[in-house]
Write a protein that binds this DNA or RNA. Structure first.
Length: 882
DNA sequence: CTAGTCACG
DNA sequence: ACGTACGTGACTAGT
């Protein structure tokens, strides 16, 4: 095989990469953009040129012979930014893991090493490639050496060999040195001959072929050029010497040591994981052609179940089961299972179809057999229509991965998890089904494909679990995982399955009412603006308001005028149309999102709404709700609040609505241990009034509603890390005043200030912050070199422990309420969670007991120095529970 | 598919 | 001096 040698100018490529890519950090906040760019470049070169040998040359700090000869060499260069400097060592480590040879030597630049190695390569019959961003290396191009110069950042390279240089520049590669000697080079501070630029330089080189020859025959020139050359002979010759890449650097090189390919793959993968280069993991596997060889592929035996009893006995003996259901899409309340795949060892995988489900009912609903899986809530829900409750869900790898990294930008897809933990290629959903409208459905896959895919998932679950278990323990989250998040899976599944009853007629009625208002507002707006237009288009509305009506522009967006509620609020006295638009927006929102939106999603079988509660979305630990989002049903304005009349209790039931009072501020008081605030909560005082009296130095009785509102804004602002500027804007007060408020606040609640500072410090030191249950949020932004990003990171750091701890608390309460209701065999069910609020659909004959349970379990979810306080309300509709 | 807007805690 | 409050999801317009 032909020997191919790639020599990379390490400094040049890392520089290019650094400036070409936006800032990137690993979880610990280490800057990685230049390393990442270098690595992708390296991969690209390997893919394209398939080198047998690789070497990377680096500059040394020590002065080179060029500096010694010419003091001004490379003077005036900008200092290397720290963000780049810190990436050198990690990059060199990465190269070491790849067993890629590195060369550096005092007194010479990377260029000279490259010149030397390439010469040696040529002499020994190698085909040589030089990779750099520096055009000087074109002088090394020959019929055996190709110089690859990066262009467009680092995305592409341009090839130079002897012929292409001749063709393009009508000069030999080595004549580039002579040209540079004449022209000089600003970036290296090589003087050249003053007054000679590119044009003259090229002309002279073409005519005289070298600087030496030119100097000797200077008589043949005339005019000013002759004078310039005559006066600067020495300068030209020295410049040439500075520009000449040395090709016999005194360095021991054994080309055999440069051979590429002998490295420990798992070490490389480890360092990639450390850098957070998850997207490159698969590329590592593909590097030496083809994926992990066949023999490493797992062995999936999918058997038709011949002897169900035998398999069931095995499960009963082992008391655990990995399972994955495959379901057609369809009504949540209907039987839609196609297959259930089950396994004990992750390799022998059994598959049953719908008819056999009943036979496994005792297994699935056994509290004795631990269930492991991937998105277990789906399995729970798939089985419910068969009158089977999947019990004892112990380990869901998606939930585990969410706890391990809630900020992960990749979804918690099996393919990503398998790659991260096992470095195994599993097809992603998109690869399996395709994407967009043309995507296939599970029911349309052929059975071999389906079996293989689910087999891979089950195998992944099996192999990933022990690693995740250890990781969770190391991160102190085993308790959170096993006692809170995993039990919550069933709670959320149960909430979804039960759903909430809706009064469809009432919803339709509201729709009629809203549409009436909308059409009259529409006419009024057209009247006031003198023309019809699409009021729903911010763009068209902007034109009407700010061009036609010439109202003052308050704020701009990326694409044009801002017309949001804040802006309209500031404009409302300038034109009567503004109030109409505000109202129009409000009613349109109610109609389209809530009336139309909810009507579309009422389950025809149950006449109820079955929202999905997602446990792995938010970075802070909160739950989110989709299709529909039941966590943002209007409540603030009376007209919107009417939507809540639609959510009603079933026959013989009432809705019990329990919400924590000021849970986030209580958490803040607890975590900061601020005596002042703890005291306020202990005396059950209105916290905002109390804050007002403390911050504004007045008696509790003297606190006006304005003062209370200001204090409330400050209290919330603190939780979010708000600035004086934002507070001033919010309260419409001078900046100075806002500053005073915050200062006075921190003076009164001094430990809160201390807590915030400590939290930021911890985040900076560890790269993450934690909640009361050790839930972790990584904050790479906190180490950003960008002021704004870094400040955002600080706000995340201040907010996440508070919001996240509140989420922890209500999750514990949910699990405990659910357990109690089950234990006592009550028919009443938990049906909704809205961050600090739980809603139970309670049977009237259980009402008092349920109220007690909910209040108790919520108030005693965790032990704190401050009591948790819960407000309870009961009604026939959500509207009534206020 | 993104941006703007607005509903909630 | 920088710009300026955290966490979500749904809908509409417009490219």
């Amino acid at each position: 095989m032909d020997k191919k040698l790639v020599i990379i100018d390490g400094n040049s490529i890392i520089n290019r990469a650094f400036y070409a890519l936006p800032e990137m950090n690993n979880k610990e906040g280490l800057k990685t953009n230049a390393i990442y760019g270098f690595t992708t470049m390296l991969f690209k070169i390997i893919d394209t040129y398939k080198p047998t040998h690789i070497s990377v040359a680096f500059d040394r700090k020590a002065p080179t012979f060029r500096h010694l000869e010419y003091e001004e060499y490379k003077a005036g260069r900008k200092k290397m930014p720290d963000e780049l400097r810190v990436q050198f060592e990690p990059l060199k480590e990465l190269l070491d893991k790849f067993n890629i040879n590195r060369l550096e030597i005092d007194g010479y630049e990377a260029d000279d090493i490259i010149g030397t190695v390439s010469k040696k390569g040529e002499e020994n019959g190698y085909k040589v490639y030089i990779v750099t961003g520096d055009k000087d290396a074109i002088q090394l191009a020959s019929d055996k050496t190709t110089t690859l110069i990066t262009k467009k950042g680092i995305g592409e390279v341009e090839e130079y060999n002897f012929d292409s240089v001749m063709e393009k520049y009508e000069m030999t590669p080595t004549q580039f040195i002579d040209l540079k000697g004449l022209m000089g080079d600003k970036s290296d501070n090589i003087p050249g001959v003053p007054g000679v630029g590119e044009k003259t330089g090229i002309k002279l080189i073409k005519e005289f072929s070298s600087i030496e020859n030119l100097v000797e025959n200077v008589d043949q020139l005339k005019g000013s050029v002759k004078k310039k050359i005559e006066e600067n002979k020495e300068l030209a010759i020295m410049s040439k010497r500075l520009a000449t890449i040395i090709r016999d650097v005194p360095i021991e090189i054994n080309l055999d040591d440069l051979e590429f390919g002998d490295y420990n793959k798992s070490d490389v993968l480890d360092i990639f994981r450390y850098f957070g280069f998850n997207s490159l993991l698969s590329r590592v596997l593909e590097l030496d052609g083809g994926f992990e060889s066949e023999e490493e592929e797992i062995n999936i035996n999918i058997l038709d179940l011949e002897n169900i009893e035998e398999f069931k006995n095995e499960i009963n003996n082992k008391k655990e089961l990995i399972l994955k259901t495959v379901r057609k899409q369809g009504n949540i309340l209907e039987k839609n299972i196609i297959n259930i795949f089950m396994s004990l060892d992750g390799e022998n995988i059994y598959c049953i179809n719908e008819d056999a489900i009943e036979k496994f009912k005792d297994i699935f609903s056994s509290n004795d057999i631990k269930k492991y899986g991937y998105n277990l809530k789906d399995d729970y829900l798939a089985l419910r229509p068969y009158d089977i409750k999947l019990e004892n869900m112990q380990f869901d790898i998606v939930i585990a991965e969410y706890l391990i990294d809630s900020t992960s930008s990749t979804s918690y897809e099996c393919s990503a998890i398998a790659m991260k933990y096992l470095t195994k290629k599993v097809k992603s959903e998109e690869e399996l089904l395709g994407k967009g409208v043309k995507a296939k459905k599970y029911e349309n896959l052929d059975s071999a494909q389906l079996k293989d895919h689910i087999g891979q998932i089950i195998n992944t679950v099996k192999n990933v679990m022990p690693i995740m278990e250890e990781t969770l323990t190391d991160m102190n989250m085993d308790e959170l995982f096993h006692s809170v998040e995993m039990p919550l899976v069933e709670v959320l599944g149960s909430m979804e399955y039960r759903g909430i009853k809706v009064d469809k007629d009432k919803l339709n009625e509201l729709g009629i009412e809203f549409r009436k208002i909308i059409s009259s507002l529409e006419s009024e707006i057209y009247e006031l603006s003198g023309e019809t237009f699409n009021i729903n288009s911010p763009k068209q509305l902007g034109v009407i308001l700010f061009e036609k009506l010439e109202l003052p522009v308050i704020k701009k967006t990326k694409t044009g005028y801002s017309t949001n509620a804040d802006v309209l609020e500031k404009l409302k006295d300038s034109h009567p149309i503004i109030d109409k638009i505000t109202e129009y927006r409000q009613i349109v929102k109610l109609n389209s999102t809530y009336v139309e939106g909810l009507l579309n999603i009422i389950n025809p079988i149950s006449n109820r709404i079955h929202s999905s509660f997602n446990q792995t979305i938010t970075t802070t630990g909160r739950i989110s709700s989709t299709e529909p989002n039941l966590q943002n049903i209007p409540v603030k304005m009376e007209i919107g609040r009417k939507i809540r009349k639609v959510f009603i209790s079933d026959n013989k039931c009432k809705l019990v609505d329990a919400d924590y009072s000021q849970v986030e501020l209580r958490v803040l008081a607890q975590m900061s241990q601020d005596e002042n605030m703890i005291e306020a909560f202990k005396h059950n005082e209105d916290i905002h009034t109390k804050t007002a009296s403390q911050v504004f130095n007045v008696n509790m009785e003297e606190v006006t509603s304005q003062l209370r509102a200001a204090a409330k804004a400050v209290n919330f602002g603190i939780i979010y890390g708000k600035s004086d500027f934002g507070l001033a804007d919010d309260l419409n007060i001078p900046l100075k005043k806002a500053k005073e408020y915050i200062e006075s606040y921190f003076a009164k609640y001094s430990k809160i200030k201390g807590f915030m500072d400590e939290t930021i410090e911890k985040a900076t030191e560890n790269g993450y912050v934690t909640t009361i249950l050790n839930r972790r949020r990584y904050i790479p932004e906190i180490k950003s070199s960008n002021f704004m990003e870094r400040n955002r990171g600080k706000r995340f750091a201040m907010n996440a422990p508070i919001q996240g701890s509140a989420a922890d608390i209500i999750k514990i309460a949910m699990v405990n309420v659910y357990k109690k209701l089950e234990e006592k065999n009550l028919k009443s069910k938990l049906i909704l969670q809205v961050h600090d609020e739980l809603i139970v659909e309670a049977f009237e004959d259980e009402l008092e007991e349920v109220k007690q349970i909910v209040k108790d379990e919520m108030e005693n979810a965790v032990k704190m120095d401050i009591n948790l306080d819960v407000d309870l309300n009961t009604g026939n509709s959500w509207y009534e529970t206020k």
